[in-house]
Amino acid sequence: MNIVTSLKRGVLLVKVEGELDMHVATEFRETVDNALESSGVKHVLFNLEAVKFIDSSGLGVLLGRYKKISGLGGIMSATQIQPQVLQIFELSGLLKIIKLYHSEKEALECL
């Protein structure tokens, strides 16, 4: 897994690449939490274009970040989600709490 965080228009952009499972869960959680704390922003946008696999361990981290972000009054959203990952999001109910966008540009305009 490769994870890159950056700031754009007051939104923390998290670009993830690889497979989100239990092996990377801790690193994924810590990277996002550290970036949230050091940046001081509250909205987070995940770019999931390069995420080819996710299971309940990966979803757990996303759910944990959702709780944290919404606790700060922020909005969590995601962009360019792949079909197989989308299926998992739908089944888990995560789609009800995470707003999806087609592109980073569209997401940043709406946030």
Partner: peptide, 17 residues
């Protein structure tokens, strides 16, 4: 159901679906 608050407890639900 999960014994850990950071987890969704969907493991068996996914296996079943």
């Amino acid at each position: 159901y999960s014994s850990d608050p950071e987890r969704m407890g969907l493991g068996f639900a996914f296996m079943e679906s």
